[in-house]
C-alpha cells in the first residue's frame, strides 16, 4: 500500500483547504471589502476604456447616423407641418361652425322672421362707401331692400342683387339713414352713417334725456327695417342751445370690419315711400 502522506499529497491537500477556505470566506461575505478594493480600479479602467471606444466608434459611424437622423427629422417636420395645416383648417371650420350656430340660435330666438344665411365674400372697392358683397342673390330669393342682420344686431339692407350675389349697404354708409328709438328714454331718432364709417345719432329732441350707454333699436318707421332690431349704444351726446335737436355718436353692436356671415330677413318687404316725400 502506497503511503498517503507523501509530501505531494500533503501540499495538494493544503492548497485545496486554502481554496475552500477562501471560497467559504467569499461566500460568507468576509472578502467583500477586499474585492471592492481590488475591483474598483478595474471597473474604472473598464469604464474609461468603454467610453473611449464608444466615442471613437461614434466618431467613425456618426456621418451615417446623421444622414438617417436628418432624413427622419425632415420626415417628422413634414408630418408636423401637415398636422399644423390640419389644425388651422379645423380651427377655421370650428370658427365658421360657431358663427353659423350663433346665427341659427338667433334665428330660433326670433321666429317671427324668416332668414337666409350668407357669407361675406367682399367689400366695396371705394373707401367712401360702406358696402359688403354676399354670396346669395335672386336665385336664393334675395330681393332689393331686405334687411340684413347678424346675431348681434342690424347690419344694413340689400342694395343691389344679381343671380348669385348681392350688395349690402351697411348702416355705417354715408347715405344710410335708419329710424331708431332709444329703449330707455322712449325717444325716436335717426342714425346716419358717414364716409369714415362712424355712426351719429340725430333728430333727438332737446328736452329728451339721453344717457351714455342707452340702447338703440330700430323703430320700424319709414318701412325700411322691421322694428326692435338691436342697433347699438349711445357713446356720447352733444346738445347746443341754438340747435333744434341733440346729436351724438353711436357705437354699433356689429363689428363691420370682421363680418364673415350674415342673415337676410326674407319675409320683410321694404316700403318705398319716395313718392310720398315732397
Amino acid at each position: 500500500m502506497r503511503n498517503l502522506f507523501t509530501s505531494g499529497n500533503i501540499r495538494n491537500f493544503i492548497i485545496l483547504l486554502v481554496v475552500a477556505g477562501i471560497l467559504l470566506l467569499a461566500v460568507s461575505g468576509y472578502l467583500t471589502p477586499i474585492f471592492s478594493l481590488t475591483l474598483s480600479p478595474l471597473i474604472s479602467t473598464q469604464s474609461w476604456l468603454s467610453q473611449r471606444y464608444l466615442a471613437i466608434r461614434d466618431f467613425f459611424t456618426s456621418p451615417r447616423d446623421m444622414a438617417s437622423l436628418r432624413e427622419r427629422n425632415a420626415q417628422l417636420e413634414n408630418e408636423v407641418s401637415q398636422l399644423q395645416s390640419q389644425i388651422v383648417e379645423l380651427q377655421e371650420n370650428l370658427s365658421q361652425a360657431q358663427i353659423l350656430y350663433t346665427l341659427l340660435d338667433f334665428a330660433r330666438t326670433n321666429p317671427q322672421h324668416e332668414y337666409t344665411a350668407a357669407t361675406v365674400i367682399g367689400r366695396e372697392i371705394s373707401p367712401y362707401y360702406q358696402y359688403i358683397i354676399i354670396d346669395k342673390g335672386s336665385n336664393q330669393g334675395i330681393m332689393h331692400g331686405m334687411p340684413v342682420v347678424t346675431q348681434q344686431g342690424l347690419v344694413g339692407r340689400v342694395d343691389a342683387v344679381i343671380a348669385n350675389a348681392s350688395r349690402v349697404q351697411l348702416i355705417s354708409d354715408a347715405e344710410s339713414v335708419v329710424n331708431v328709438h332709444l329703449q330707455n328714454a322712449k325717444v325716436e331718432g335717426q342714425i346716419v352713417g358717414s364716409i369714415t364709417g362712424e355712426i351719429t345719432l340725430e333728430m333727438i329732441p332737446q328736452d329728451a334725456e339721453v344717457q351714455i350707454g342707452d340702447v338703440l333699436l330700430t323703430s320700424g318707421l319709414g318701412g325700411n327695417y322691421p322694428p326692435n332690431i338691436f342697433v347699438g349704444q349711445v357713446l356720447s351726446m352733444q346738445s347746443q342751445q341754438n340747435r333744434l335737436f341733440q346729436s351724438g355718436s353711436v357705437q354699433s353692436i356689429v363689428d363691420f370690419s370682421s363680418l364673415s356671415a350674415v342673415l337676410i330677413i326674407t319675409n320683410f318687404e321694404a316700403v318705398d315711400i319716395t313718392p310720398l316725400v315732397p
Binding site: E124, I125, R167
Partner: peptide, 8 residues
C-alpha cells in the same frame, strides 16, 4: 364692370 359691382 367696376361700376356694376361697386356702389360708385
Amino acid at each position: 364692370i367696376v361700376s356694376a359691382i361697386s356702389a360708385s
